[in-house]
Write a protein that binds this DNA or RNA. Sequence first.
DNA 1: CATGAATGAGTTTTCATTCAT
DNA 2: TATGAATGAAAACTCATTCAT
Lengths: 209, 209, 209, 209
Amino acid sequence: MSNQTPQTSAGEARRRKRQDAARRLMEEGLKLVAHKGLHACKVEEITRAAGVGKGTFFTHFPSKEAFVARLVDQVLSDLARRVRPVGLMPTEAEGLLAGVGSVHLRYFQLRPEAAALISQACALVEDGQPGQEIRARVLEHLGMVGELVAPAAEPLGWPRERVVDLALMLLATSCGFYWFSWTLAVGQDAPPALVDRLGRVLARGLRGA
Amino acid sequence: MSNQTPQTSAGEARRRKRQDAARRLMEEGLKLVAHKGLHACKVEEITRAAGVGKGTFFTHFPSKEAFVARLVDQVLSDLARRVRPVGLMPTEAEGLLAGVGSVHLRYFQLRPEAAALISQACALVEDGQPGQEIRARVLEHLGMVGELVAPAAEPLGWPRERVVDLALMLLATSCGFYWFSWTLAVGQDAPPALVDRLGRVLARGLRGA
Amino acid sequence: MSNQTPQTSAGEARRRKRQDAARRLMEEGLKLVAHKGLHACKVEEITRAAGVGKGTFFTHFPSKEAFVARLVDQVLSDLARRVRPVGLMPTEAEGLLAGVGSVHLRYFQLRPEAAALISQACALVEDGQPGQEIRARVLEHLGMVGELVAPAAEPLGWPRERVVDLALMLLATSCGFYWFSWTLAVGQDAPPALVDRLGRVLARGLRGA
Amino acid sequence: MSNQTPQTSAGEARRRKRQDAARRLMEEGLKLVAHKGLHACKVEEITRAAGVGKGTFFTHFPSKEAFVARLVDQVLSDLARRVRPVGLMPTEAEGLLAGVGSVHLRYFQLRPEAAALISQACALVEDGQPGQEIRARVLEHLGMVGELVAPAAEPLGWPRERVVDLALMLLATSCGFYWFSWTLAVGQDAPPALVDRLGRVLARGLRGA
DNA sequence: CATGAATGAGTTTTCATTCAT
DNA sequence: TATGAATGAAAACTCATTCAT
């Protein structure tokens, strides 16, 4: 019994250490993918940055693509955690949509690396199984967001069965905008007020087109 | 004299045939990059699709990256050709901005392959010389569009020196949106009216944030 | 303790095995370069001969050229190890020079592969960084030999600042001679006595010219 | 008759022009091979330097290797032209050998490009038919020189059947020395007096070894 | 489990040679 | 005959993945 506890806590410690390595891999991996690009960043760079051996990578993730899929999942889960509360707040139709869109924009403005990841991960979509996983995961997010803003659809005259398009627009434009900003090193610091005004003007353009 | 013309036209035919191969390479290259992804599509696939030998590719373009840079240039030039006339039409401030934004959106809606290319090309921006070329080319486009919509900036209360942010938003959101649509196979056929309404709602969200 | 040693020796064994592969690569590489020529011998042939995978080659040497540079270094170091003792033996001026020259000649006579390597490596000298490295390495050898025979220079009426020319002549003529012998398959077994006599006669020719 | 002559001279002119192109190709080819190395210099560079189209090269020479073989032939013929007269001059044994050696040395001292060519061409010897041709051509030269110095062999106590070794030494050492000088950029301008003295000293070394 | 050395399929790129004009 | 565009075999090199320790 006296060594049961130590054993257990030893096991605990070991598991914790392992979890820690995984967390570090994903953290550094996200940074590197965003900074150097999905293909320019090599598995070895990621493990070096995370301070683990190259082989360790593959005990945590079955492949590099699966790793990217995990990163995408993590980002979208994180984003979802911030989006969902907005859907629970009772507001009128437009306010709901606006709130959800706003959360997306702020999210990627503060985390351009996440924007870089999601944008680049889309390029894998055609490939094998992990690519399909990524696609499914993004669609799942869109579905979730779609459901969230669904109550706002009808009042706004939007067909109920196309709510996923709404979600797509929210994700794609915010993500795309901040990825371009990031890679081109332009306008990253555009203050929300500018973004606000720009959105309004763009909307008028669309309406009038 | 009778053989002078044939000789000339023979040289002409030769050059025309070569130009034709180049055009076919770029055409098929754009398709393949969009469909399979920038890295998943191999030079040999492009040449096979274009009906030329592998080596021929490198007589037209010094490297695959340079090829992508050329594609980006072509797309942006094509887009600019459609954007510029809008800038010449006399309209009030908002109308100008709205018109330019509208052209961008329609352009990528009709040519999702172009959206796929531009989005993915941004991932090369960190790399070597061709990557820098791509970056410079996109910035040039943004500069041009910025100048075009500059007259609309002041009246709308937008700082004159940040017109490039306006341009960035127009390009990034439209390009990003249709790339996501394309790869996720969702909402590609969203009718303009929906896009219009969505823009308006998004704008309200931004305003309220 | 009982597993400490095995662990250590396991790591040792691992490193030893790796070093062994490197040694085999250089051994077989030298042979192949000499037999097939620097350009006719492919990396894959070398690795096949050494019994390792193609990729392994590049974990030991950053490039084929760098590999050649390493071979050159190895040969010159080996040669230097035999030359240096001669410089320490107290002899009069001519005897010193004669001894050093003799070592060079005997060295390449017994190792025509080394002569083939050095001669061909000179062709890389114009190229990039590894070529410069090779050049620098050969010059370093010449400098060392020059210093060694320097005491003999003045007594023989040779300008002190041109001792490197002495070294060059010793290396180039011996190396060149045995490379020609090797590739042309002529005179490889010329007995030392012949070489001796020929040298004397040649000298008289030079003197009389 | 009045147009017979023009026709003929037209044909003459054309043939002369063609011969001229061939000469220019060999001239520039020799320079480039010596400066950039046998493999680093491309056929197109040679034709550009010679001011002819790339295809023209192959109407003059069946392959690049055959071209090198022709260059080797040219150099050796040129060298032979200077060597032969020495063989006809009546001198005693040592004087004959010394004279022939001297011509070789002076030849390559003045034409380091020729030395570079011959040295590098030896690397092709293992390859296909043109390589064998080169080997045969060099051996032919050695045979000729051997015959030339044969009268000196017996008086010097040299076995008659090894005269080719004498020739080899004359060619290899002079050619090797000036190639090393050239590529390493050391001692190229060693005045004959130094070379003379060095040869004498080297000889003593050989004798004493 | 962690590690890093070994691996080879796969990629871009080169360049001598061919051939239609 | 001269030309230069087209060609594809071949080479160096990369890197995700495996596996012995």
